[in-house]
Design a binder for these strands. Structure first.
Lengths: 336, 336
DNA sequence: GTGAAAGCGCTAACAT
DNA sequence: ATGTTAGCGCTTTCAC
């Protein structure tokens, strides 16, 4: 690999002039500039960006901690992050953490060892060790989607409680009174928030909360399918099921249909996220649309602003949601 | 950030000793070693890995070019790459290229500018410019999934033609004679190969090939849904549809069901990939399972072997496939 | 076993 | 407008 000295030698100038030709061309005379440029292409010079990063102390890399890239919703968020990062000259280092704190800590070390400038965490957990916070007001981090309530870093989230309440109200407005809830992973704050919104709506409508209508899930298709079986085995069958994400809903719908139920005639099903598959399920799924790509954009831009020192206090950004009513929810059947 | 000099000062040794303590502890006396170690933890020293990479000329980064992370199959492949890379001490730089050659070339430049050691391309296109090949027998690249037939780099693929033939045979064995094919993007070699396999099976069975039974698609749910409409509008309705990927199949199934058809009683549908959603569609989708995560592992390991100089000639690795017969395919209905 | 010193490729003062 | 030079933080000969 030819280096800057070789170019300088061939062009008969100093290395500083070569560097300037590339960084601030206006400070170099046109004739020198063209001489340098032709030397560059003659030897096929490509600046070693690793050296540049090393010297500048800025890597232009951002670590992204994602529980699993196999989750379609996260894939959309990552896609949005990618876009925003590229636009601002940053690259993304992907960390598929499986929600494992040790793996997360390993990736977080990349920031402490100058391999990345900052980190985006999509799970409610601070991956940095205590040594990170001294003489610094803000962590070089943004927490998005599933967030920690803290002032250590900016946060990008959605009002999950209100959104879940809106969906539950939608079901209630269709006449449903016995509404099951398939939850997300126990450890996830999202689960608590969405559950709280569900309870809010029931309370408003004067419907008694019954925790026998709560079913376990973990955001996977499989878990939705299994929850459906449990729901069918329940003594009084609910007329509607609110699933804390779309994968769960799609898994559950399959379970119901295989048991011979008609959706929404026998049972209504609602999800959360609006992944691509939801518009193409049978029937199409009623869900809460989250601006996934926007989550990514916002998180990246906030992080870079923190790194640039443009942000001093941790903002909390609340993204909008939209209830998408499709055919999987309908009027409650008459009592059996 | 404390540096190696600070540690050396505090421990009363030279920087070389600190470096050795970390790199080759056996070459340092136990007492010096412990003195250095306590100095390290006292100042909270973390080696600047950017400096290490710069000096060593190895970044331990691999660029991954993926047409879109939103594709569930690719998400699985990436997940596998991640795993293998982490195991061998490499990080992944993700490039969501949308199949755009300019964007690809931009990411490929990361290798030429020493930001990454090598590249994995999931699309059949060489992203490097001509300057890359001189005095080098192999490109620092691996081409996986959808591959280019070349000896420039190792290739990891699947015998798409044979797999497509197997699926078509499966349909024929169920008595289907009028089998439609929903294709992938025209530009993709996968489409050519799977089409060839489809034709092979028809020819073997003595069924005349009819290109009116070929329908356009682009691997998205949407395109499958639209193709279904076209298929329904066709003068003689096929009794089976082979879709070149699962997303297309799921979109198509929804289209058929909304039109009142029963799957597989009225029409059989088969896919390709075996994404997670396929086991949970209604009915569950018959498909060709590809070892997606294994594709990722293999690609990464081959690439690192190339970088290590362990591989001199470009191997072509053919991954195994498996036909998964589920409920979306069944005996052909009697002629209408 | 340990230290001194060179240097990876580049940028940015500082000089001229 | 251009050149000289001092490092960025680290590893690695080469001495001792």
């Amino acid at each position: 690999m030819p280096n800057i000295r070789e170019v300088a030698g061939l062009a008969g100038v100093s290395v500083a002039t070569v560097s300037r030709t590339l960084q601030q061309p206006e400070r170099v005379s046109p004739k020198t500039r063209s001489r340098v440029m032709s030397a560059i292409s003659e030897v096929g010079y490509k600046p070693n960006l690793m050296a540049v990063k090393f010297r500048s102390g800025k890597t232009q890399n951002l670590v992204v901690l994602v529980p699993t890239v196999a989750n379609v919703f996260f894939a959309r968020v990552i896609s949005g992050m990618q876009e925003a990062a590229a636009e601002r000259g940053y690259s993304l280092l992907l960390g598929n953490t499986l929600g494992n704190e040790e793996i997360e800590a390993g990736y977080a070390k990349m920031v402490q060892t100058s391999q990345a400038d900052g980190l985006i965490q999509l799970r409610a957990h601070n991956p940095f060790d205590s040594s990170m916070l001294k003489d610094r007001e803000l962590l070089p981090m943004v927490n998005a989607c599933e967030v920690l309530d803290t002032s250590l870093c900016p946060v990008v989230t959605l009002d999950n409680r209100t959104a879940a309440r809106a969906m539950t109200r939608h079901l209630i407005s269709l006449g449903h009174k016995c509404i099951a809830l398939i939850k997300g992973p126990k450890s996830s704050p999202l689960t608590q928030e969405r559950l709280a919104g569900y309870r809010d709506a029931l309370a408003e409508a004067g419907i008694a909360f019954d925790d026998a209508l709560l079913f376990a899930g973990d955001f996977t298709l499989q878990s939705g399918h299994e929850a459906a079986k449990h729901i069918l085995a329940h003594n009084t069958r609910p007329t509607a099921v609110f699933c804390e994400n779309d994968e769960t809903a799609i898994g559950a719908m399959q379970g119901f249909k295989q048991a011979g139920l008609k959706i929404p005639d026998d049972i209504s099903v609602a999800g959360f996220d609006d992944i691509a598959f939801s518009a193409f399920s049978d029937p199409p799924l009623t869900t809460i649309a989250q601006p996934a790509e926007e989550f990514g954009h916002t998180a990246v831009n906030l992080l870079i602003d923190v790194l640039d020192g443009k942000i001093k206090r941790a903002p909390k950004v609340i993204m909008p949601y939209e209830l998408i009513a499709r055919a999987s929810t309908g009027p409650a059947p008459r009592a059996i």
